Computed example of a mutant assay.
Amino acid sequence: MKKIVIAIDGYSACGKSSTAKQVAAQLNYAYIDTGAMYRAVTYYFLQHFINPTNPRGVEDALKKIGIEFHYNAKTGANETYLNGLNVEKEIRGMAVSERVSEVSALPRVRHCMVELQRKMGKKKGLVMDGRDIGTTVFPDAELKIFMTADFDERAARRQRELLDKNQLVALEAIRDNLAKRDRIDTTRAESPLRKAEDAYVIDTTHTTMDEQVNMILHMAREIINQEEFQNKG
């Protein structure tokens, strides 16, 4: 069967990662959470006191960072490994959330991660979510999705996610964090968050996870069938 690249972009807490994981599982595709990659870099910077405003320090740190994803049979999900250590739990905390947009806005960090992401997608059969997948990483992706949701709903979802991880964070702090990340993500000079011209918009405010997944699967299968038909012709 013909394999394609599915690029899913959008704001924080819109359900990108959860949706992308399920789409990948249904199609038997690889799934790459690029947000986790930037979180892993941020976590490394915090652990090693790397100053983002020091170009030489950033460059030296990036040479020491290795990021991989390994499948966890118990959870049924890929988990993030930083230099051989599982950091999936650590990178999801508020300490990393507070700094990840700042770190991911650095041109050298983005160049390094985009290069790695493109290597991961060479064989296609891939679902990748992030902020600039359809615009920068895979501008030729066969299917591009841009996800959005009401701001208050996003904040409530993020609070529930943190509670599921036994992290109690005030809703106002989460709102402030999301607003800050939105501002940085959409205004940074390097690969800002924006909808690709040929991306389909999915507003997840009032849709269920199953509805989101099914919408993308329907579009993906239509593209796959069309390309297979054209190849036969």
Rank of each mutant, 00 (worst) to 15 (best):
M94C: 02
R131W: 08
K21P: 03
N177H: 08
I4Y: 00
A179Q: 15
I32W: 06
K122F: 02
K21T: 10
V201M: 04
L116M: 13
E190K: 10
V127I: 12
V109C: 02
L126W: 05
R221G: 01
F146P: 05
E88N: 11
R188G: 05
V109M: 01
G76Y: 08
K3T: 13
R181W: 05
N54D: 15
Y43D: 07
G84E: 09
M215A: 12
E227V: 09
G134K: 06
N83D: 10
F229A: 15
M128Q: 09
T53Q: 15
C112Q: 07
F69H: 07
A40H: 01
I145K: 01
P139K: 02
N28I: 03
R108A: 13
L126H: 08
A25T: 02
S12M: 01
E153Y: 04
Y11H: 12
Y81R: 08
E90N: 04
N231K: 14
D164Y: 01
K144A: 02
A24L: 08
R181N: 04
S104G: 03
A40M: 04
N231W: 10
I91N: 01
I202Q: 03
N54Y: 11
K123S: 15
I6E: 03
G121R: 04
N78W: 01
T42F: 05
M120C: 11
R92F: 12
Q47I: 06
R181L: 01
A7W: 11
I223H: 08
N78E: 14
I145H: 00
N225I: 07
T205M: 04
R160P: 10
R154L: 03
C14M: 03
L46Y: 07
L62C: 07
L82H: 01
Y200L: 11
V5Q: 03
Q159G: 11
Q167S: 13
T42K: 05
F45N: 00
K165L: 14
K64P: 02
C112H: 08
D198Q: 10
N166P: 04
A105R: 00
K89F: 10
V23D: 00
G93C: 07
T34D: 12
D198Y: 12
K195D: 09
E172V: 05
V137E: 06
E115N: 14
M37K: 01
E98V: 09
E153I: 13
R99A: 12
